[in-house]
Write a protein that binds this DNA or RNA. Sequence first.
DNA 1: CAATCGGGGTTCCCTCAAGGAACTGAGGTT
DNA 2: AACCTCAGTTCCTTGAGGGAACCCCGATTG
Lengths: 150, 150
Amino acid sequence: MQRTDFSRMACSIARTLDVIGEPWSPLILRDVWVGLTRFEQLQGDLGISRKVLTERLNHLVDQGVLERRPYDQRPRYEYVLTEKGAELVDLLMVMTRWGDRWLAGEAGPPVLYRHHACGEVAGVDLRCDHCGEPMHANDVDPLPGPGAAR
Amino acid sequence: MQRTDFSRMACSIARTLDVIGEPWSPLILRDVWVGLTRFEQLQGDLGISRKVLTERLNHLVDQGVLERRPYDQRPRYEYVLTEKGAELVDLLMVMTRWGDRWLAGEAGPPVLYRHHACGEVAGVDLRCDHCGEPMHANDVDPLPGPGAAR
DNA sequence: CAATCGGGGTTCCCTCAAGGAACTGAGGTT
DNA sequence: AACCTCAGTTCCTTGAGGGAACCCCGATTG
């Protein structure tokens, strides 16, 4: 956890960071999403300290992003995405797109996505859920909402 | 900086985290986006340690996400988003949407966005840039790309 | 022209989280 | 009985975040 607590801020970005803003958390979600769901798999793939992995997994479970469930008679557990967690993966896809565009360099993107609906390798695009036109940072003005700080 | 260096990983998520994954960085970008562009403004609004703010601003400038420029004859500077940085704000919009949905609670979203194209308060939607259909975590399969690790 | 002010940082110390390696415990297998 | 695997836990060291004080520079004020 960051030393400063972001969860009380009247800002959805800050609150989201309180859930997945700690180091490793997004990478853990990515791994769980692609099927690396067990403690040993995660630890081996990421090279993360076992102590920190335990802390992150507990926090993600507490936040309702992952669910811990047994997969054997023996005390063996795997972590799976909840609906709340799956929607966070959308965020990872947008993060991926930015990294592909600005950081991948010559070699190109390390991972591609095939879209089920059309069967093509494709990228994600941000659109307005009202009019369907592209919606980016420069296409909007922020205004105070109902949950704004007093 | 996180203790482990993510920038060498063959993963656009990890590389992106290396740019904005440190505590406070996304909140700094948000503030700059809404017009809080000066050191004192950022420090006051966020309540961040001046030391850490300096480190973060330097890192974001080094990464080409922010540009530092004088706004006076006196040694006064402001930080503005580059194109690379503005595209990161797209990521923040998606983060906001998730936080609004899962963490805002009774009070509702703290901030709303008015879309220039249609003039309405609207949210952002993820679509396939090939077929235009919705594109979420469960609608795609990841496959190795050209920049995949050997 | 000394004193003050405000913006933009630097320096210092303290605490706590990340890294890393060793250890534990429960339940199988040989 | 000895050993193996998975899933953690414990302990120590290092270094990043928090916080307060300090510094530099140019402009304004008495």
